[in-house]
């Protein structure tokens, strides 16, 4: 039986030449946290990468943490200036990632409806950040 293609990422995508791209929204409880979550899922559906579990990074679940460390590109989507997604990644020793903050795009925390339009704005900013980012050195 012939070998299968080598080391195909489980999180295959078309955005960055087949690189493994993982997306970590903060998925916080506020409106902007919810927008980050929807944006992460939509980026996944549209093939920019694969949303992965930020909670698994916080809990140091080995498979999840090691996957993040090995990813070619990472996008953190923070809802607000608390930057919980970015900080969670940093604390786990994961750096060299792109990030987008929802409140930086005219969406104040606690005053922003979770609409398709607002989610789409963050999807576009996330896609731009990914395209502009370099492949991670640790990957």
């Amino acid at each position: 039986m012939a070998d299968k293609p080598c080391c195909e990422p489980v999180a295959m995508n078309d955005c960055c030449n087949g690189a493994t791209v993982l997306i970590y929204p903060c998925s916080g409880s506020s409106d902007v946290g919810e927008i980050s979550d929807h944006a992460g899922r939509l980026l996944t559906k549209e093939g920019f990468g694969k949303m992965h579990c930020l909670a698994g990074i916080g809990g140091r679940v080995p498979g999840i943490t090691l996957s993040a460390q090995a990813a070619d590109k990472i996008l953190a989507i923070d809802g607000c200036p608390q930057d919980c997604a970015s900080k969670t990644l940093f604390v786990a020793g994961i750096d060299g990632f792109a990030s987008v903050r929802v409140t930086d795009h005219g969406m104040p925390k606690g005053k922003t409806p979770v609409t398709d339009s607002n989610v789409r704005t963050i999807v576009q900013r996330g896609a731009e950040a990914l395209r502009a980012s370099e492949l991670r050195a640790s990957a």
Binding site: V61, S67, A70
Partner: peptide, 27 residues
């Protein structure tokens, strides 16, 4: 099986688990 691999939280292969704990991913 991809679904079983994903149950480990692993997003790229190959990976090695020892007694159910993932030790290496993607190399």
């Amino acid at each position: 099986d991809i679904d079983k691999i994903l149950e480990f939280g692993v997003m790229m292969t190959p990976a090695l688990a020892v007694d159910g704990v993932v030790k290496v991913v993607g190399k």
